[in-house]
């Protein structure tokens, strides 16, 4: 089965979603990510969905689940690069992804994570 690569950058993990998501990939990603956070002791997760142009309620819930999961493992999640069409779809689906941090691009997302960690210390 195809698995999404999880890259470690400093104290953060970066997941860049470049392909159309299938439900089994999403579940695998959740498992992998949990493993990697524990393994690396990462404090932040950046999920880049710039290339994602179709979302459904399952994908929306996946983002919420990943965020909740990382929070339990003491890591912050930032979703970056959401396209306008995707954002509109999620709003129309009634998924406002409360409690998830968002940023316009990867750079801003990483800055957001490091500044949040800075203030926490």
């Amino acid at each position: 089965m195809e698995r999404l690569p999880i890259l470690k950058i400093g104290q953060m993990l970066l997941v860049s979603i470049q392909v159309d998501l299938r439900d089994d990939m999403v579940i695998a990603l959740q498992e992998d990510l949990a493993d990697r956070i524990v393994e690396t002791g990462a404090r932040g997760v950046v999920i880049d969905i710039t290339a994602l142009d179709i979302v459904d309620s399952f994908t929306g819930r996946m983002l919420a689940t990943i965020a909740a999961l990382s929070r339990v493992l003491d890591a912050e999640t930032v979703v970056v690069g959401m396209r306008p069409a995707v954002a509109i779809t999620l709003v129309e689906l009634g998924l406002s992804l409360d409690g998830i941090k968002t940023a316009l691009d990867v750079e801003r997302g990483m800055r957001l994570l490091s500044s949040a960690r800075g203030t926490a210390r």
Binding site: V78, V80, M82, A87, L90, S96, L104, G109
Partner: peptide, 12 residues
Amino acid sequence: LKTIVAARLMGA
């Protein structure tokens, strides 16, 4: 409100 929530999802 919808516009604002969508903008938030995008990180703005």
